[in-house]
Computed example of a mutant assay.
Amino acid sequence: MNQNQRFLSLDVFRGLTIACMILVNTPGSWSHVYSPFLHAKWHGCTPTDLVFPFFLFAVGNAMSFAMKKFNTMSNAAVLGKIFKRTALIFVIGLLLSWFPFIKYNAEGNFVMKGLDTLRILGVLQRIALCYGIGALLVHYLRPKGAFIATCVLLLGYWAILWFFGGSDPYSLEGHIGLQIDLAIIGENHMYKGEGIPFEPEGLLSTLPAVGNVVFGYLVGRYVQQNRHARGMLLKLVLAGSMLIVLGILWGTVFPINKKIWTSSYTLYTVGIATLLLSILIYLIEMRNWRWGTYFFEVFGKNPLFIYVMSGVVVKLYFLFRLGEKNENMYSWLYNHVFRPAFGDYPGSLLFGIFHVLLLWLLGWWMDRKKIYIRV
């Protein structure tokens, strides 16, 4: 493996994740989405359910490179860096949730969006918390201690759900995390997409999600330390396969579930991510495969910025209304461009692909200008 190219497979993995995030978050119509591009209704795992945990895994993988400099920094400087990055990502998530800060009222006029119904948690907020907790575990407990602490978190989360949940502790209503979020955050500041106030990026379920970051760190560190060792890739494949099997076995008693981020889901998704990264390492670093990698590399060089911009573009669409039916621009594009040209389901998919390409052009321009936004 070439030392100077050690980031390429990581950039491709991370970029693939961002591209998939944009694709699954931007269908032309939620009524016309192919099943692999939908989340599981509750228990289970679809390809779409792999995207978010893969990104957390990539965050940990990147930490294994970035945190080397922590060894030369004072304790205060390390804490400052971790807390600053955590706070920045969290605040960006809040601002994206609030954006564009105005909305239509019942009379069709613009009014300011109040803070009384602002969703507090979300994807970026979970990334921030998982990074912060994961970075602290790795820095202060070192790899072995962080691994043990992560196992305790996964087992402890299972115990909390089992002992403090309702008669069906892994259900929407019986999940104790729901009660915690209602008590601390309040229903006005929670996601409403499940029929009741429920936060899929809730406080309690953030604990097992930290495992995706820590395991990503451990995998990245192992690859760096053993990049020239014989059998490195085989051991990585075996580890990934073992985690998948463990996740499936654990899932027989603690169902694989993204929305409450069960511990079995963490093991299962980390296992698949490890296998996918192993394939990329083999092709890119060992076989010098370069065909098509630049497309995903572009996303991987500015991942958080491009993800935020994907949300900004969609939210701006809803500010503009077009046509006789006064449709928002998002619906108008699908109903008057993509759906007539390609049909219901293909048009909805191509709508998402169009936005992947649109955001890629932004990333490509930034790469050409050597603009890399780090948080």
Rank of each mutant, 00 (worst) to 15 (best):
S171L: 00
S263M: 01
W261G: 04
T266G: 01
L182G: 01
C151Q: 13
H139V: 13
K68C: 09
Y268R: 01
A87H: 04
E297N: 09
L141Y: 07
I260P: 03
Y330E: 12
V314C: 11
Y34V: 07
L316A: 08
F299I: 05
L203I: 15
E199G: 06
G80I: 10
F163I: 13
F351A: 05
N257L: 07
E285K: 02
V24H: 08
G220L: 12
G28Y: 12
P36H: 15
D11N: 10
G195C: 01
L358K: 02
I196H: 00
P200Q: 04
T150F: 00
V59S: 10
G44K: 02
V24G: 06
N61C: 14
A106W: 07
V313S: 11
L357T: 00
G352Q: 05
Y268F: 14
A149Y: 14
K235W: 10
A273F: 00
D11I: 03
Y34F: 08
E297L: 14
C151E: 09
F7T: 08
W291G: 06
S9Q: 06
V245P: 09
I185R: 04
P53K: 13
L362V: 13
K68S: 15
S29H: 02
G193A: 01
I18K: 05
L280I: 10
R374T: 04
R230F: 03
L283A: 14
F52K: 12
H43F: 15
L94Y: 02
F342V: 11
L136F: 12
L204Y: 11
L304F: 14
L234C: 05
Y294V: 04
I82M: 05
A239H: 03
V223I: 15
E187D: 02
W250T: 08
Y294A: 05
P47N: 03
P346C: 04
